[in-house]
Simulated scan of single mutants.
Amino acid sequence: MKTESVKALIEAALPCTYVEVEGDGSHFYATIVSSAFEGLKLLDRHRLVKDKLKAHFDSGELHALSLRATRTPQEAQP
């Protein structure tokens, strides 16, 4: 899977204002800014993303995704 494909999966699953994905085709690292994270603790934010992509993990299409940052739009402002 390519980084662009992982980014597209995340953007389709969540209302994102920013998504950055890096990786080597097997393991990916993502930074996500989404209003869906409002009121959620860090662990719940990560669970939300992983749950939304569960079918892709279960099929083996997506092997590993590490979440570098999961922020709300307000938290992402300088």
Rank of each mutant, 00 (worst) to 15 (best):
K2H: 12
S5P: 11
V6P: 04
V6K: 02
L9G: 05
E11L: 09
A12Y: 11
A12F: 15
A12K: 12
L14H: 13
P15N: 14
P15S: 13
C16W: 14
C16K: 02
T17I: 10
T17Q: 08
Y18H: 06
Y18I: 02
V19K: 05
V19C: 08
V19Q: 04
V21A: 05
G23H: 03
D24Y: 05
D24F: 03
H27V: 11
H27I: 11
H27Y: 05
Y29E: 04
Y29D: 06
A30G: 07
T31L: 06
T31R: 03
I32F: 06
V33M: 12
V33F: 13
V33G: 09
V33H: 07
S34C: 07
S34K: 00
S35K: 00
S35C: 05
S35Y: 08
A36E: 07
F37L: 09
F37E: 02
F37A: 04
E38D: 11
G39F: 15
G39R: 05
G39K: 07
L40V: 12
L40P: 10
L40C: 07
K41M: 06
K41E: 10
L42F: 14
L43C: 13
D44R: 06
R45L: 10
R45I: 11
R47G: 14
L48D: 12
L48P: 12
L48C: 13
V49F: 06
V49I: 12
K50C: 13
D51M: 15
K52V: 12
K52Q: 12
K52R: 09
K54S: 14
K54H: 14
K54M: 14
A55Q: 13
A55V: 15
A55W: 13
H56M: 13
H56N: 15
H56K: 13
F57L: 06
F57K: 00
F57D: 08
F57C: 03
D58I: 15
D58G: 15
D58V: 15
D58N: 15
S59N: 11
G60K: 01
G60F: 08
G60I: 05
E61Q: 04
E61F: 15
E61N: 11
E61H: 13
L62R: 06
H63A: 04
H63Q: 01
H63V: 01
H63I: 04
A64K: 01
R68H: 09
R68W: 14
A69K: 01
T70D: 08
T70V: 02
T70G: 02
R71S: 00
R71W: 00
R71V: 00
T72N: 00
T72W: 02
P73E: 01
Q74R: 02
E75R: 00
E75A: 10
A76C: 07
Q77V: 06
Q77H: 05
Q77W: 01
